[in-house]
Design a protein around this nucleic acid. Structure first.
Lengths: 180, 180
DNA sequence: GGAAGATACCTCGTTACCGAGGTATAGCGA
DNA sequence: TCGCTATACCTCGGTAACGAGGTATCTTCC
């Protein structure tokens, strides 16, 4: 059981939930999903697959190579499918607070077939984002973008604010329509 | 020498470049900067400080506790100051492509006292962001937000697009004003 | 037929990072 | 004076992730 498992395992579970894939294809999908934000090394992916196989979350079947070298087609076991649903329904703290992990949760949240449970997860993220937080302080007072004479930090705040606003808007809308 | 050092070390170098701080204060500043996106554990920070002391990047001076337990005030050495400038001027690939690391670079880029060098760093990020990239594919065709019937993935794309747009606008503006 | 390039998978050694837990100092209220 | 909270720092065991490097298959082009 993956009590302390990372974002990578969640992504593997998520992609395989839809359809069996071989490692190389999985790698491309993960790279598309998170690669431009947090790249994934091959030497991280393949050991993760082995770990998960050993844990009984997925099964491998060797297939003669359609294009080149032989492939290992990966299929989720029932345990694996349950594990994904469990991790989506009860994300741990880091899945909510770490942006990369959160976006991975979001990418597969539809697999949780229950609008109430989905809304509960979104609400946890909303609560986290609504906690007051700033980037830079002068003593105890948070500094606003306009107060910074450093153009780079000003940029940082501008970008973060745009992200935050987009996410908050979307969260509130979506929670509303899941409830309604 | 930190050839392969992480984002944490960059943040430590950056904050101490301005002023000496003790570990606990450093921790609060790092938490404010990156904590709501990627939390930092104490058990990661203190070993990092030790590593960097051993590497000659910073020096520690014990001070009787002003408020409570005794503090170790951390000061960058000349090597440490040089290391920050080097890492800002020649960020490695992951500093550009990993969002957390990139934002850390941005937070301290002003310490690079040369607009041309600063603009060069921004241009590397711009080039990276301008590479075509999507999140989800149907075969080889990238899927747009509007095409997804999954509200969560649609949200993902919406948020990512808002971030990307804000960053691109800011990058182009700022590169322009650094050049001009 | 030989080289190049894409596909596909893997091992190894190292390290950054984590959670759990521990120690000590100081101030405050009961 | 007994806890409680906040400050401040630390160790330990475990593991996820990394870069560097390697192997094998198949197609394409010269």
């Amino acid at each position: 059981m993956g009590e302390n498992a990372g974002m990578l395992e969640l992504a593997i579970l998520g992609f395989l939930y839809d359809a069996p894939l071989h490692g190389y294809e999985l790698r491309k999908r993960i790279a598309a999903l998170t690669g431009h934000v947090k790249p994934v090394a091959e030497s991280t992916l393949y050991p993760a697959i082995k770990r998960m196989e050993k844990a009984g979350l997925l099964a491998r079947a060797t297939q003669p190579g359609a294009v080149a070298a032989p492939r290992h087609v990966l299929t989720l076991t029932e345990d694996g499918r349950g594990e994904l649903r469990r991790r989506l329904a009860e994300p741990d703290r880091r899945d909510i607070t770490d942006e990369n992990r959160w976006f991975t949760v979001l990418a597969f949240l539809r697999h949780l077939d229950d609008p109430v449970a989905q809304a509960a997860v979104l609400r946890r993220r909303l609560a986290f984002l609504e906690e007051p937080a700033s980037f830079f302080y002068e003593g105890d007072r948070p500094l606003r973008a306009e107060e910074l004479d450093d153009p780079f930090r000003r940029g940082l705040l501008t970008i973060a604010r745009a992200t935050s606003r987009a996410e908050l808007t979307w969260l509130r809308e979506t929670i509303g329509s899941l409830d309604g």
